[in-house]
Structures are given as structure tokens and as C-alpha cells.
Nucleic acid binder design. Structure first.
Length: 551
RNA sequence: UGGGUUAUGGUGUAAAGGCAGCACAACAGAUUUUGAUUCUGUUUGUCUAGGUUCGAAUCCUAGUAACCCAACCA
């Protein structure tokens, strides 16, 4: 009795291919260029490609598309590998387009011998002007009719380093009047005297994307090469090269990249945010990078669930950020340890509690009994949340107010008798009496209260820095707004506060996730030390009262 | 003004000529020692105009809108 989950269009293609016996098993690949950090958009591609070969027989390669030495670096290779592993996926082979440089060079010679490629001495400006426009055909380069021998000779000399950068290129000979601009004699190789992160100074000519990607797919026997919509025009060239080279026929399929509301998702824009110091690096918890989200406290499960839920299609989209938050909270609710922390403290004094007494009260650690319990110190002076007291209570107010009663979570019911203000009118102390017989777990008081609030004992509380994050942008789709996307940055996306947290948190670890009761999910930040704890707010809890207040 | 791709509630995604479904969001209620969780229910949709058909989101015709393509980037 398997639940009937509908297939996305790529799964349909794969099932048809498998059913027709076209393939016995499939091979996919995740092909990042190592020139930046992975973000949520890559996560969809990773979940798709690796997910496919979990569902169907076959495997997925990790292939670094490193054909442009000036932008690429091993620093990125390492972070990409770390991010994929963290997301919970394993690649079959770790490969590099640069592994195929010799083979690619020979492919180019094959093309020249077939009269399908030529060396062009034109400058990039000349090439651009002869290219035509989408509505006008291009013009043949005057070098297009060079003899095969001359092409072979010049291409070899290009490889040998005889020419300066930009003085010559190798181009495919297709059709300068083609309606698809990419088929107008596309560049295959360019000269770059640059150091490559893997091949060093061995090469001074490097293949273009179009002459590397499809060929690498073919060399690896990739059956389904999945990319995003903007590569649709490339498919015609992809197929042309494979056909002329007579190599393994990989096929390209395209899906629409997923966009998330209230953020941006292009390497270029993310790089600007980092360079212009709008965020503190690629792993800033506000960034939609995998490393940023990891630091923020996202779990791999929640990201995988999200990718699975939004699915795959070919139309333009902006996914609600709230769906990501839902997937996050769903996972965190099941795993986070429950603790108490007061983010905006005000003193609460229990006037009828003994002055020097401290008692240990028992509180549950997690969402169910399996997580066990722990002892929390309770005493006469506590910190409670400032927003849990209202001098003049609103209607439907369940919390503290003069004369009102609430339960202190895992402790006693208290009644507010007095409060003290400073000269500015700010409440600085709330005085209560407690009901000893209302003790949590053995309550015989028969007092019913509607509200339960969290607290920490003032004497034992420890102080911690807490970083509260909000959305990075003020608008749903910063990229589609007038002017520069950076004009729409939310200036209040980071708020740093100092909170009182319960003493057990002294042993907090980065592996654990915590729910600060009634306040949200938090995780320990890497900036923490034994003297100073730093927590990141991953996401708030849903807040029905906040909605009520808005009305 | 050429070529390509796409159009289903506020959002994302199903329905391969036969009941427009699912999830998020929103709203209402129940439970609750977290105004959380959980549970129950409600609202909202096939781009437009024609046509074929017993029957159309799906097929046909004509429109409309959005996105992509003129880097020695990927």
C-alpha cells in the first residue's frame, strides 16, 4: 500500500526511459562552478539530482565545472563538499571538468578535422558586432574559411602559448544566421594565461561552458543532465556537439529555479551583500547560503523536506518564506530541547517566599517523555519577560497584571499584588505572592489560571548574548523592484540583546537545538566561548497573541 | 520588431477528455502547565475570447501576460 505521490515531469521522463528499456539505471550529476558558496537554489538542485538516484537505480556524480581559472578556487571546492555532505547526500565520484582537458582538446581537433571548427583572429568586439542581434542575422567572420591544416596549426600554437590572451579563439562552424543566437558560431576555446586551481600552468587555453559541460556529461555517461531554464537555448548546441562528436548521448532537461520571498538568490547579488558589508560574510545567519542557514540553526532534514514539498516545474515562482519556516518548525518541534530564557527581563519578587531558600523544581526536557527531565533552581527573586506584565491589561490578556494570577512554568501559581516604577515610569519590579499548594506536579490548590509564563531564578541565571534575526529584505521580491535591490534591505534584520538564561545552558552544545520556551528556537553560535555564550534565534514560535494584538 | 519557455486559490504543486486535489498562508473553534504543539472546520483558483465534445484545466483557433537569448561567465 504505497501512498500515491504524483511524479514531477523529470520523474515521468525517467520512468518512461526506464520502462522503454532505454536505460537500466540512471546517472545524474550536480555540477557547481567552484567560484562561490552554495545557496538555497543549489539545495533544490542537489535534492533533485541526488533524490532521483535514491528513488531510481543509479548514482550521482559531483562534478566541479572548473573551466574558468580566474574565478575559481579550492576554498570553494571544500565548502561545496562540506555543504552537500551536511545536507545528507553522498556522491559516487568526485570529478572535475578539468580532469577532461586533454580529452576536450582532442574533441576540438576532431571538430577541426571534420571542418566544423575554425580559429578566429577577430577581437571580442569584432565577434560581437558580427553576431547580429535576435532580430537580425549575423555575418560570417573573414577567418571562417581557413583551411583545416591552418586551423590545426593555429589551434596547436594557441595551446602552446604562442599567442596573447584574447587574440584568437576556436569557434564551431554552424550558422551565423541561426535564429538561436547560441548557434551563431559559438566560441569553444579561449586563451587565458592563468593559473588553474588544479591543472596549474599546464594549460593556457580553456574550453567554454558549452564545450565542457555536455562533453563532461557524455564522458561520465550522464543519462539525465538537469539544469535551469536559462540553459534551454544551450540544448540545441549541447545536442549538436554530441552528435558531431559521436559520443555518448546525454540529454539535457530544464526546470525553473526556485525563488524564495524576502531574499535574493544569485551568487552575484549575494557577493555584493558580503563585499558591501551588509552581512558579516557568506555564513551570516541571514544569508540564504547553506552555510548561513546551517549557522542560523536550520536542520538538513528541514531543508530536504522543503525542497521535496515545493517540487519541481517549469514555471516562474516565488515560494513563500513561511513554507520554509513551517518545515523548519516541524522538525525543530520534534527535536529541540525545552529550556527557559528571559530575553527582556524585569524583576519579579515573591514576597511570601523565604529569603535565602532555593528549591529544585523538575521540568521536562523535550517534546515527549523520552527526553527526560531536569532540575531548575527556583527562589524568591526571578526574572520574567517584560512583555508578560501589563499595568492595564488588554482584553483577553492571560498574563500578569495587578491582581491577576499566572502559573510560573513548572513552578507555582503567583498573584501580582504590587509593582514598582522608576522615575521614568518604567516598571522595575513586580511583587507577587505564591501559593505553596499549587506546586507543579502536586497541585492541590484548585486555582485555575489561563496563562503560564517562563522565568529564570535571578541568583542562578547566566547571561548570554542573543542574536535575533529578521528577514533580510523589506519586500517580497527585491530583484523585481525599481532601482537597486540593496535599497530594499531591512535595516533591522539583526538585533543583539543580552538575556538571562537558565543555568543548565552553561553546557549547551552546537549539536543540540533549543526551544526557549514561548520565545522560539535557538542554537549556540560558533562565536561562543566558555566565558560568553552566544545564541542565534533560528525562528520564532508561531504567536497567536501577536496576531490578536494586531487586530 | 526574431526565436524560445511558461500560464491552475495569496504562495508552491497535482489532476495524461470524466468529482479541480494536496501542502503552506489566512480565518474560526476544541484541547493545552509553551497564546507553541495537536485536533476539527471555513474561505479562496483553471490568463482572455471563441470552438470541438454528452463532458475541457487538459484538444483546436485567435489573442494577452511574464520570463529567457546578442559575456573570450557558468
Amino acid at each position: 500500500m504505497s501512498e500515491e505521490k504524483s511524479l514531477n515531469f523529470i520523474e515521468e521522463i525517467i520512468e518512461a526511459d526506464l520502462a522503454a528499456g532505454k536505460y537500466q539505471s540512471i546517472v545524474t550529476r550536480f555540477p557547481p562552478e567552484p567560484n562561490g558558496y552554495l545557496h538555497m537554489g543549489h539545495a533544490t538542485s542537489i535534492c533533485l539530482n541526488f533524490g532521483l538516484t535514491k528513488k531510481y537505480p543509479g548514482y550521482t556524480n559531483l562534478r566541479f565545472d572548473d573551466t574558468n581559472p580566474v574565478t575559481e578556487d579550492t576554498e570553494y571546492v571544500d565548502s561545496i563538499k562540506e555543504d552537500i555532505k551536511w545536507l545528507g547526500f553522498e556522491w559516487k565520484n568526485e570529478l572535475y571538468a578539468s580532469d577532461y582537458f586533454d580529452e576536450l582538446y582532442n574533441f576540438a581537433i576532431t571538430l577541426i578535422r571534420k571542418g566544423l571548427a575554425y580559429v578566429d583572429d577577430s577581437t571580442s568586439e569584432e565577434i560581437a558586432s558580427l553576431k547580429g542581434s535576435p532580430t537580425e542575422p549575423g555575418t560570417d567572420s573573414s577567418y571562417r574559411s581557413r583551411s583545416m591544416d591552418e586551423n590545426l596549426d593555429l589551434f596547436e600554437r594557441m595551446k602552446n602559448g604562442e599567442f596573447e590572451d584574447g587574440t584568437r579563439t576556436l569557434r564551431a562552424k554552424i550558422d551565423m544566421a541561426h535564429t538561436n543566437m547560441l548557434m551563431r558560431d559559438p566560441l569553444l576555446y579561449r586563451i587565458k594565461h592563468a593559473h588553474h586551481h588544479r591543472t596549474g600552468d599546464k594549460w593556457c587555453i580553456y574550453p567554454m561552458y558549452d564545450f565542457a559541460h555536455g562533453q563532461s556529461d557524455s564522458i561520465e555517461n550522464i543519462t539525465h543532465s538537469i539544469c535551469t531554464l536559462e540553459f534551454i537555448p544551450h540544448r540545441e548546441l549541447y545536442d549538436w556537439l554530441i552528435e558531431k562528436l559521436e559520443i555518448f548521448p546525454s540529454h539535457q532537461y530544464e526546470f525553473a529555479r526556485r525563488n524564495l520571498s524576502y531574499t535574493v538568490m544569485s551568487k552575484r547579488k549575494l557577493l555584493q551583500l558580503v563585499n558591501d558589508k551588509h552581512v558579516n560574510g557568506w555564513d551570516d545567519p541571514r544569508m540564504p547560503t547553506i552555510s548561513g542557514m546551517r549557522r542560523r540553526g536550520f536542520t538538513p532534514q528541514s531543508i530536504r523536506k522543503f525542497c521535496d514539498t515545493i517540487g519541481i516545474a517549469k514555471r516562474e515562482n516565488i515560494v513563500d518564506f513561511s513554507l520554509l519556516e513551517f518545515c523548519l518548525r516541524e522538525d525543530l518541534n520534534n527535536t529541540a530541547l525545552r529550556v527557559m530564557a528571559v530575553l527582556d527581563p524585569v524583576k519579579l519578587v515573591i514576597t511570601n517566599y523565604e529569603d535565602d531558600k532555593t528549591e529544585d523544581l523538575i521540568s521536562e526536557n523535550g517534546p515527549d517523555e523520552a527526553y527526560g527531565t531536569r532540575a531548575i533552581p527556583f527562589s524568591k527573586e526571578l526574572w520574567i519577560e517584560r512583555e508578560d506584565f501589563m499595568e492595564e491589561p488588554a482584553k483577553k490578556w492571560f498574563r500578569l497584571a495587578p491582581g491577576a494570577m499566572v502559573r510560573l512554568k513548572s513552578a507555582y501559581i503567583v498573584r501580582c499584588d504590587h509593582f514598582i516604577k522608576d522615575e521614568n515610569g518604567t516598571v522595575i519590579e513586580i511583587q507577587c505572592t505564591y501559593f505553596p499548594e499549587s506546586k507543579s506536579g502536586s497541585d492541590t490548590s484548585e486555582i485555575k489560571v489561563k496563562g503560564t509564563i517562563h522565568w529564570v531564578s535571578a541568583a542562578q541565571a547566566i547571561s548570554a548574548e542573543v542574536r535575533l534575526y529578521d528577514r533580510l529584505f523589506k519586500v517580497e521580491n527585491p530583484s523585481s523592484e525599481e532601482g537597486d535591490f540593496k535599497d530594499y534591505i531591512n535595516p533591522d534584520s539583526l538585533q543583539i540583546i543580552y538575556a538571562f538564561i537558565e543555568p543548565s545552558l552553561q553546557n549547551a552544545t552546537t549539536e543540540n537545538r533549543y526551544q526557549f520556551l514561548r520565545k522560539g528556537y535557538f542554537c549556540l553560535d560558533k562565536d561562543s566561548s566558555s566565558e560568553k555564550l552566544v545564541f542565534n534565534r533560528t525562528v520564532t514560535l508561531k504567536d497567536a497573541w501577536a496576531k490578536e494584538v494586531k487586530k
